[in-house]
Simulated scan of single mutants.
Amino acid sequence: MTPLRVLLHAPTAEALARARRNAANLQNARPDAEVLIIANGAAVATALATPDATDSLLRLCRNSLVAQGLDNTRGLVEVEAAVVTLAERQVEGWVYIRA
């Protein structure tokens, strides 16, 4: 069976909280699943302000960081643009879920 590959898109603080819970629940239910949380917009500031056990799965949109004048002082993984990452992963067969 092909492992699940899931993109959780979090553009708001509330969506980030849901995405973090969804990621943890998915990993508990399907340990072989690949999961990424793609944060952009308001979720980026929240991600920087609130560490979480799922942060190894988190990818911050660099465009959102720049637009909001934020520094990634936590050293979280960044992607060039959330929209590019979301589109590229979907082309690769990842399932998109907006949290």
Rank of each mutant, 00 (worst) to 15 (best):
M1Y: 09
M1P: 08
T2W: 01
T2L: 14
P3I: 07
P3E: 12
P3D: 13
L4G: 08
R5V: 03
V6E: 04
L7M: 06
L7I: 15
L8A: 01
L8H: 05
L8Q: 03
H9Q: 11
H9Y: 14
H9I: 01
A10F: 01
P11Y: 01
T12N: 04
T12E: 06
T12H: 09
A13D: 13
A13L: 05
E14D: 11
A15C: 09
L16Q: 03
A17E: 11
A17Q: 10
A17M: 09
A19R: 06
A19D: 01
A19W: 00
A19Y: 04
A19G: 04
N22P: 12
N22Q: 14
A23L: 04
A23C: 12
A24C: 07
N25S: 14
N25I: 11
L26W: 12
L26I: 13
L26G: 08
A29F: 07
A29G: 10
R30S: 14
R30H: 14
P31V: 07
D32M: 12
D32F: 12
D32P: 05
A33V: 02
A33Y: 02
E34C: 03
E34F: 01
E34T: 01
E34I: 04
E34H: 06
V35H: 03
V35Q: 06
I37L: 06
I38D: 01
A39K: 08
N40A: 02
G41Y: 02
A42Q: 11
A42G: 13
V44S: 02
V44K: 07
A45S: 02
T46I: 05
A47S: 04
L48N: 01
L48A: 04
L48Q: 05
L48S: 00
A49P: 15
A49G: 15
T50S: 10
T50L: 09
P51W: 08
P51V: 09
D52K: 01
D52A: 15
D52E: 07
D52Y: 08
T54R: 00
D55Y: 04
S56A: 15
S56W: 05
S56I: 13
L58K: 00
R59E: 00
L60F: 13
R62N: 09
S64M: 03
L65F: 04
A67C: 08
L70K: 03
L70Q: 03
D71L: 08
D71Q: 14
D71P: 00
T73N: 14
R74E: 06
G75L: 11
L76N: 00
L76D: 01
V77R: 12
V77D: 06
E78G: 00
E78Y: 10
V79S: 03
V79E: 00
V79H: 00
E80F: 02
A81D: 00
A81I: 00
A81E: 04
V83Q: 01
L86W: 12
A87W: 12
A87V: 12
A87I: 08
A87N: 02
V91Y: 05
V91F: 04
V91Q: 05
E92S: 10
E92Q: 10
W94G: 01
V95K: 10
V95A: 13
I97M: 13
R98W: 05
R98H: 14
A99Y: 03
A99G: 15
